[in-house]
Each structure stands twice: as C-alpha cells, then as structure tokens.
Design a protein around this nucleic acid. Structure first.
Length: 592
DNA sequence: GTGAAGGGCCAC
DNA sequence: AAACGTGGCCCTTCAC
C-alpha cells in the first residue's frame, strides 16, 4: 500500500508538520531507537500520523546526539503536540515510546491509547494469541505487516528509504488499528478497563525511568552472610550424605550436586530416610526433627536460594547511568490484570527485613510506603454483601480475631492464638477456593476437623459462601467472568476432566477478586500521578497491593497524605460497602 | 552450546 | 476425592 509521508529534518518543516497535525483527534505515534533501553541508546525517529498524512521526524537533525534535545527550542512545537491531551496518541506498547519521549524530550505524552494493551484485553487471557503489532494487524485488519526493518541499524548516518518507509507505515496504520480494536472493545464491554489501562501507561513508564535505589554495600553484606552459610551447610551436608555411601574412604568423599533433587534424593534414601514424592520444603519439614540430614538440606536450600536469586544477580541490574535498578513492569502481566515484573522481579524480594532494608532512600530523600489492608477480603465482602463479613471489617480492630470470634462463637477477647491463626489462614485461603484437605495439610488438623472448621466458617458467612458457590457454578454456564472494571477472563477446562473443572471453578472464584484488586491499584496509580505533578514525589515500586514512593525529605508528609488519599479514593470507586483501609508510613528503608 | 520443561521457591 | 489463585528466577535434566 502506498502511503504519503514526509521526512522532517529542519525547524521550519517541523513547525509546519505539527501545524498540519495539531487538530487531528487521533494520531498514530511511534519511535525508532538505537537501543531498547533509553539509558543506553539514542532516540532517532518520532513518527506521527493521522492515517493518511505521516511525519517522520529525524531527531539527529535537531541535536548533536540526544543530549540537547530537551532544551532545543526548535522542538517546542513537537513537544507541545506530544504533550497535548486534546489528541489521542495511538501507539503499540506505548510504554516504550512514552519512556523515550519522557527521557529524551522531557515530555509527558498526553492521552495515550495503547493498541497492545487493547489486544491483550480482547484476548482475555488466551495465551495462544500473540500481540505484536504485525499479529494484531493480521488478526484485526487481515493484512500482513512487514517488520523486517524493526531491528535494522537506527544509528546509521543516513537511513535507507526502506527504513523511513517502514517507520512511516507503523505510525500510519495505528488509527486504523485503533478503530478496529475499538469495535471489539465496545462490543465486549471493555471500555472502562481499557481506559484504566491506558491511563496507567505513563505512570508506569515514569516508574521504570525513576528506578529504585539499592544500598549496594548493605546488600553485599547480606549476600556475604548467606554465602558463608551456604558453603558451611554444603560442607556439612556433603559429610552427612557421604556416610551412606560405601567405599567413600577409598576415593575420598564423593561429591554430590546438592542442587540436584535426584542426587540428593538418592543419597537420603541410602541413609534410610523415607523420602516423600517431592523434596519440597513443606514435605521435608516434618522429617527434619528425626533426620538431621533433612534439616541440613533445608538449611542449605534456603541459603542457596538466597545467594542465587537474591545475590549478585540483583546488583548486576544497577544501571550505571543512574546508580539505580530499573525493572521491567508488564502492565497486564496476568489475565487477572495483575502486574508482572522482571529484570529483576522487584515483586519477589524476600519480605524479611534483612532484604527490604537494603532498598533505601538516597541522601536527603525519604521513602513513603503504603499498602492496602486486606484489600482482597474487603472486595469479597463487598461483592458478596455478607452482613457478618462486612461487620467484621466495620467493627473489628483485629479482623482475623473478629473472624475467629464469629466462627467459634466466642467473645473476641477469648480468642486463643491458635483460633486466630486458623481464622487468618482461612481468610487467606478462601479467596483462592481452598478445600478441606489443603486446609488440613496446612494446619495439621485431621480431614474431619478441617471440614468442620470450614463448615463453621461458611455458616458464619452464608452470603459469602453463596457468592463463591455461584462464582463456581458460572464456569459451566458463563464460560467467563469479570473484574470490577469489566476485565474479562475466560475459563479453559475439559468438562470430562474433574480436576480441570475444579481448577476453573477456583479460578472463577479468585479472578474477580484478584482482578478488582489490580484494578484498584491501577486506578490509584493514575490518581496519584495527577496529584504529584510538579512535586519532588516519584513512584519507585509497586507490589500488587503496595506502592512505594521516593521524595525530598521535606515533602514526605505531603507525599504520604497524597498517597493515602489516592489509594483510598481508588478503592472506593470499586468497593463501597466496606471501608477501604490504607496503611502508610514514611521511612528510610523499604519496610512494612 | 542452546532451549524447553520441570522442580523448587520467592512475592502478594 | 479432588490439589489454593497470580507471577518470575534459578537450577538440573534432557533433547537437539
């Protein structure tokens, strides 16, 4: 298909180009860069298009390298156009493009529409579907998009005609892609959730650029501690396991690979340890008292996990340009709408103080840490409208104690530590669709006792029970469910296969709850973003129900107030029958 | 050598 | 009687 495009390489042309486009409601938006990481490479091209008229702006013509782009007055019309909220900027994986524009031009892109996120929402968890631009164009426009130039050299002095045409085409097609996607978005009832996602793109892009600060010496100290434990326990475990091997003395102690389940299992069997089917910690734990080798193995495993997953690998992610860690957040990481995080995964840093205390506020700054208190249970209480469950929140200072009192029919002050612990584990388990056998395994109760406690629990909260049962029933009739924002998840199961039906039923119970929790977090990110414009407050991390900010020390109280307010308001948009509680505090370290 | 699969384990 | 939901990372194993 022939398209019209103009290569823009001088101030006058740029001014005219921006004039031509500034009254268009929808603009396709794309960038080409020399690297994937804005802290490493250069921004080479910015493409903008109304679908017919396409401008390819060569930034090399506007600055010697990218250093001067932020201040070059010739770029003012472009900056204004990108920042304008009057026009929708349609991009595929807009986080990428908005990051580069933020970093290199100092501009926050206004009014983003992300066709990548739209496509994911429409697929509703179908893992088979791909969401690259070429895939989306193929599915929704039945056209083939040539992406071969995508990985070409965008740092070349003179770009080839093929490169420039490719760049123009990618931007030019976006308005059409959006129009097609919109038909499905609207007919599927996904308008609200897509708006929620689109409004999150820029806050997330900025969070990635901000990064989080890690106290390197402190982390290294913790790592050295664990390394010492690992080598000591490895030695000790090797000695213990060698005792079971004949002729060990002839050739010295045979070395076993302690990271190999197979070799370790064999060695333990030789020593007469009745090994369970798996060597997972919770299976081995009961054997640890009787068999010191098992205890030692668990000790070794913990240290090995610490050094391998939470050691040097994390330090390697510190970006030299900023001295900070810039992880990658996938906005729709799970079909429920939860984020996924990688390189490194800041959502799986051990909750132990020794690890979290390494993430600190730099000199002169403070961290502000806030999390939702029992957000998933509050969502369940709200959805199910169970009066007792709601009351436990409205009244109870200690929610798990209140649950225990209701379940066991006693006064809150008479609740024993054991009873509270049962109630707590039940409260957590119920949003995952826990069953009696798992609960028995978890608590050490017999199957019958576990069934009895579950029965009491659901008798205490009959409408919650009904809501969960109804959610499970929907698997057969509805074949899909939704979160509070309207996000869709479809069920995949084989009606002939009981376990797959069971899994789908548990998913049906969990998805609306987990999904609404994700909706609330995303909504709060946008509200917060609006409220911190022009302040020193920066978003630096999110973990499902938690937000971490960094700001000038003097601004910390203001940041805490803004954060609590944004999170509470976001929660109240989705949950009304139960109060939303946010715990917020100011700290030097990332601690609860 | 590289990659996929599976076990194990970290988070919420 | 059924396996408690969502992720990512590290390691071993095994196939190519």
């Amino acid at each position: 298909m022939e398209i019209y495009f103009q290569l823009v390489r001088d101030p006058d042309s740029l001014k005219k180009a921006c004039e031509e486009l500034k009254n268009e409601p929808d603009l396709g938006f794309d960038v080409e860069t020399t690297e994937l990481d804005p802290y490493k490479g250069d921004l080479r091209l910015i493409q903008l298009s109304n679908g017919v008229n396409t401008k390819v702006i060569d930034l090399r013509a506007f600055g010697d390298g990218n250093g001067s782009l932020k201040t070059n007055p010739d770029l003012a019309p472009l900056r204004d156009l990108l920042a304008s909220t009057k026009q929708t900027k349609i991009a595929h994986n807009a986080k990428f493009d908005t990051k580069w524009v933020r970093q290199k031009l100092g501009v926050e892109v206004g009014n983003v529409y992300d066709t990548y996120l739209a496509s994911i929402l429409i697929a509703a968890g179908d893992g088979e579907r791909r969401h690259g631009l070429a895939d989306v164009v193929q599915v929704f426009l039945q056209r083939t998009l040539d992406k071969t130039e995508q990985v070409s050299d965008w740092g070349a002095d003179e770009l080839s005609d093929a490169q420039i045409e490719y760049a123009a085409r990618d931007a030019a097609i976006m308005p059409e892609v959006k129009a097609k996607l919109e038909e499905r978005i609207q007919s599927d009832g996904l308008t609200r959730v897509l708006a929620l996602e689109n409004e999150c793109v820029v806050p997330i892009a900025e969070m990635e650029l901000n990064g989080i600060y890690l106290d390197e010496p402190r982390w290294r100290e913790q790592l050295e501690k664990q390394t010492t434990i690992q080598s000591r326990t490895a030695e000790e475990l090797q000695d213990m396991l060698a005792a079971g091997v004949a002729q060990a003395s002839l050739f010295g102690r045979p070395e076993i690979n302690l990271d190999s389940q197979q070799q370790v299992t064999d060695a333990l069997l030789n020593l007469g340890v009745p090994m369970p089917n798996t060597t997972r910690a919770w299976e081995l734990q009961p054997l640890a008292d009787e068999y010191p080798q098992v205890a030692k193995l668990l000790e070794y495993r913990a240290a090995a996990k610490a050094t391998s997953s939470f050691g040097q690998n994390i330090l390697d992610f510190i970006e030299p340009a900023t001295g900070r860690i810039h992880a990658d957040f996938r906005q729709i990481g799970a079909p429920t709408g939860r984020f996924a995080c990688s390189s490194p995964n800041l959502q799986q840093i051990p909750a132990e103080h020794e690890y979290r205390r390494c993430f600190v506020a730099p000199e002169g700054k403070k961290l502000v840490v806030a999390d939702y208190s029992q957000i998933e249970l509050r969502i369940l209480a709200d959805f199910s409208e169970d009066p007792n469950f709601i009351n436990a929140f409205v009244s109870g200072a200690d929610f798990h104690k209140a649950t225990a009192a209701q379940v066991f029919g006693i006064k809150p002050e008479d609740v024993s530590a054991d009873q509270r612990s049962f109630a707590k584990r039940l409260n957590f388990g119920v949003v995952y669709g826990i069953g009696a056998s798992r609960f028995a395994l978890m608590t050490g109760l017999t199957q019958t006792q576990a069934e009895d406690v579950l029965k009491r629990y659901f008798n205490t909260y009959p409408k919650m029970d009904a809501w969960l049962r109804n959610a499970a029933r929907g698997v057969m009739t509805e074949r899909m469910t939704r979160s509070g924002s309207g996000r869709i998840a479809r069920f995949h199961f084989d009606p002939e296969d009981r376990s797959s039906v069971g899994a789908a039923q548990r998913y049906a119970k969990n998805m609306p709850i987990q999904g609404t929790s994700a909706d609330i977090l995303k909504r709060s990110l946008r509200l917060l973003h609006n409220d911190i414009q022009g302040t020193s407050i920066r978003l630096v991390n999110i973990v499902h129900d938690e937000i971490v900010l960094e700001c000038d020390a003097a601004d910390a109280p203001e940041a805490a107030a803004k954060l609590e307010s944004a999170m509470t308001r976001a929660g109240s948009e989705f949950v009304q029958k139960v109060p939303i509680k946010v715990d917020v505090h100011i700290a030097e370290e990332w601690t609860k």
